[in-house]
Design a protein around this nucleic acid. Structure first.
Lengths: 190, 190
DNA sequence: GCGCAAAGTTGCGTGCACGCAATTTTGGAC
DNA sequence: GTCCAAAATTGCGTGCACGCAACTTTGCGC
């Protein structure tokens, strides 16, 4: 938040307005009954502008309940453990339970939520590099971690039994999914 | 090709017809000047049917130059090596050079081509399982491998210097990208 | 052959993503 | 305060993906 030119603040404001409008409307009318136009309208902005902020209808809704930044990696200790802690940290947010239920229930939102995992790859790459790992190696590892996170999210969202029930603790699932990658991560230790 | 009911053969035929029409038209007019309607038309099929076969305009074009199935994993030896060979094998196809140039040149096609890598995950999971690895572990590893493959493809497609030049040998890039995952793969050995 | 259920195709309608060019807003320099 | 270049917003137009509900084809049992 270092630079806060007025312009930047206004942009952030409309972004937030769009997110909140999207979430509110989706919760009120059901996610499939919300049109982009309504969201834009509720945020006091033109429909075209909506897509200057979000690449799809679902993104605004999901963004409203998604952590914006990854926690930093712990400085020392095994890389695998530090990564697991960071990823778990990122996905351990309170977040409106009703909103989460809606996301887990709706296919489009589910997919969009899972794709969130791609967003951690950039920061992860940097973080891994800053621990002395070669940049190209770090890129691959971050991509692998992102893929594992997606698997974990998919497992978490998978309808268990007949009912749409969250199938286990997300932190546990994330740690379990990252486990197979641990040898690769710890092999980078100097 | 075990089951070849007439129905199945006709489906395959239209699929191929669509692919070839798409590729031919894209090569002739430039990929951005080809409308879905034209492709469908050239394949003697309704536009609506196009999307029963391909989820996007780009997919048919890319599918025309993409290997349909992964080579099987070698039965013995280290898993990492077997996987690397299989993935390299999958991406080592002749393929019309002109078509490849077009794909590497056009942003939309590039992205679609990279996403091809997701298609190897299913077969890979099965293959890894059949080597005695736990199913959940295999799923994560396959996802990681797919992610690494995407990184390799992206590096390969990255415009090097000012010109749109393929930046190195794809097999080399794939092996390099898979290298960091080797410890994780070989750690599964009984 | 005959008929019928399943599979595939088609047309229609809707909402959406996005390129483009025109317009409005912003904010620092003077 | 005034001005202007950069940035953001907007409207428009286009092509596309896809749900849905007819309609047509297929292929199997008889």
């Amino acid at each position: 938040m270092a630079v806060t030119s007025l312009r930047e603040r206004k942009k952030q404001a409309t972004r937030v307005a769009l997110q909140e409008a999207a979430l509110r409307l989706a919760l009120a009318k059901g996610p499939d009954n919300v049109r982009v136009d309504e969201i834009a309208d509720a945020a006091g902005v033109s429909p075209r502008t909506y897509n200057n902020y979000f690449p799809s209808r679902e993104h605004a809704i999901v963004a409203a309940v998604t952590a914006s930044r990854m926690p930093a990696l712990a400085a020392g200790g095994p890389l695998a453990a530090a990564v697991a802690d960071a990823v778990v940290g990122h996905y351990t947010e309170p977040g409106d339970p009703a909103a989460m239920l809606m996301i887990t229930t709706n296919p489009g939102l589910r997919a969009c939520y899972v794709d969130t995992a791609a967003g951690i790859e950039g920061p992860l790459t940097e973080a891994i590099v800053s621990r002395g790992v070669d940049a190209k190696t770090a890129e691959v590892l971050a991509a692998a971690i992102g893929a594992a996170a997606k698997v974990a999210l998919r497992r978490w969202l998978k309808p268990a039994g007949g009912l749409m029930m969250v199938s286990g603790s997300l932190p546990e699932l994330i740690r379990a999914a990252l486990e197979p990658l641990a040898p690769a991560l710890d092999a980078t230790a100097g």
